[in-house]
Every structure is written in C-alpha cells, then in structure tokens.
Amino acid sequence: MMTSDPQAWAADLTGLHAQVWARLLHGVANRQAPARHPTLATLSPDGWPEARTVVLRAADPVAGTLDLHTDLYSAKVAALRHCARAALHIWDAEMQLQSRLSVQVQVLSGPEVAAIWARVPDPSRQSYGTLPRPGQPIATDLAYEKRPDADSFAVLRCTVWAIDAVYLGPEHRRARFDRETLWQGQWLAP
C-alpha cells in the first residue's frame, strides 16, 4: 500500500516500539520534552481513579522500566500500596504520538534509594518532606513548610507490562506491545 505519511517509523512495528522508547529517553534528558511530564493514573484505596502529572526521572528500555520520584507520604504511594498496577499516559504533539503504558509499580525508599537521593539537586529535594505531609488539610494556602528529608523520598520503579501506541498523523496507526510476547507487537484498529 502506497502511503503519503512522512513518518516511516509509524508504519513498522519495530520502528513504532523504538520511537516510544526514544521519546521516553528524550523525556528523561530534556525538561521540555512531552515525556518528561507523563500522567500517572492509579486507583485510590476507596476505588476512585486518580490521575496526576509526574516527572520521568529514568528510563531503561532493556529492563523495560521507568523511574518516578515522589514523597513517600503522598496519596499516590498509598494508592500504589493498595493496588500496584498503574498507567502512564503521554501525548507528544510534535510526533503525533500517544503512548499509554500499563505498569506494575514497586515503591522503593530508605537505603534502597540513598544513592539516588545523593544525586537529587537541592531545589528538587524541597519537594520531599513537607510539613504537614502531602494532602493534609491546612489553614491557609501557604501554611506548610518545606523540610527536605531523605526519609520522605521514594522512587516509583515502574515495570512496563504493555504499551499501547497510537500515531495520529495523516494515516492513523495503533499497536500494542506486551512484555509477555517479548515486545513483538500487534497492530490494532486505531
């Protein structure tokens, strides 16, 4: 079939899978990249869906993992302890690529993340250790203190189990890639 679509990577399962990971790696390296700030969706302990913007800190295409940093006492950690399955969503307008990743999340903290904490710059450390803890009621808009605390720092290690990639260029394409099939890929109707 002849195509006028300029994105050859989108017409090939291997190319599409590689493009998703390339965009994730770009998100780790570039603060302006769309993959830098994916949306993380979890299920609260009382059964409500929750979505929030997070910051992608590491991506390992060989292991199929992504790392996010968070406050150990945040609602997302409580949700993940209740149900360790989550989803990440990224819309990359420049590439016209939507990536939805199904992940299993392990919450790492304490000595397991000490080496990572040591590399977190001071301005970023301000996000881990607020008093009162994240999500607690406060009397006024700024009635909290920032107290960087390594004991409040956690890494969410996300093991990717499935990727649903949708290219929304001139000729839409969609594919699913699963860890269980060694990322072989299957075309889906967009």
Rank of each mutant, 00 (worst) to 15 (best):
K76Y: 13
L131Q: 10
S102W: 07
V105E: 00
D151C: 00
P123W: 04
V120N: 09
A118P: 07
L101C: 01
S152M: 13
A87P: 09
I116N: 13
I138Q: 10
D149S: 03
I138W: 07
S127E: 11
M95K: 15
L88W: 03
L88K: 00
K146L: 15
A150R: 00
C83F: 14
Q136R: 12
Q104R: 01
H89P: 08
P148W: 10
D151V: 02
E94Q: 13
A150N: 08
G135F: 05
R81V: 01
Q136D: 05
M95V: 14
L142Y: 13
W91A: 09
Q106A: 07
A114G: 06
V77Q: 11
T130H: 06
Q96C: 01
V120E: 10
D122A: 13
P123A: 06
W91M: 09
V113A: 01
G110K: 00
E145N: 06
A143M: 05
R85L: 11
P137W: 15
Q96S: 06
W117I: 04
R100L: 14
C83L: 15
G129K: 00
V107T: 04
M95D: 09
Q126C: 13
A139G: 08
Y144I: 12
A75K: 14
P111T: 06
S124T: 04
Q98H: 11
L131S: 09
V107H: 05
S124R: 11
S152C: 12
I116T: 14
Q104M: 02
V107L: 01
S74W: 10
P121I: 01
D141E: 12
Y144R: 13
Q104A: 06
S74K: 14
S99K: 15
A87Y: 09
S127F: 09
P123L: 02
Q96D: 02
A87T: 07
R125K: 05
A84F: 09
R125S: 04
S152P: 06
K76H: 08
P148N: 09
P121Q: 03
E112M: 07
L131F: 12
C83W: 12
R125L: 04
V107M: 02
D151E: 14
S99C: 09
P111E: 07
S109Q: 07
I138A: 06
D151R: 00
E112Y: 01
S99L: 09
T130N: 10
E145V: 08
A75C: 15
D141S: 06
Q106C: 03
R147I: 03
D149P: 01
W91T: 15
L108Y: 07
A118F: 06
R85N: 10
P134T: 00
R85G: 13
Y144Q: 03
D149G: 00
W91S: 08
A139D: 13
Y128R: 08
V105G: 00
R133S: 05
A114I: 02
Q104P: 08
S124Y: 05
I90S: 03
A75N: 15
V120C: 01
L80P: 08
C83Q: 10
Q106D: 08
R119H: 13
Q126T: 12
S127Y: 07
L142M: 15
L97F: 04
D151S: 03
A78S: 11
C83K: 13
R125E: 02
Q136K: 11
A118W: 06
P137C: 09
Q98A: 11
R125F: 04
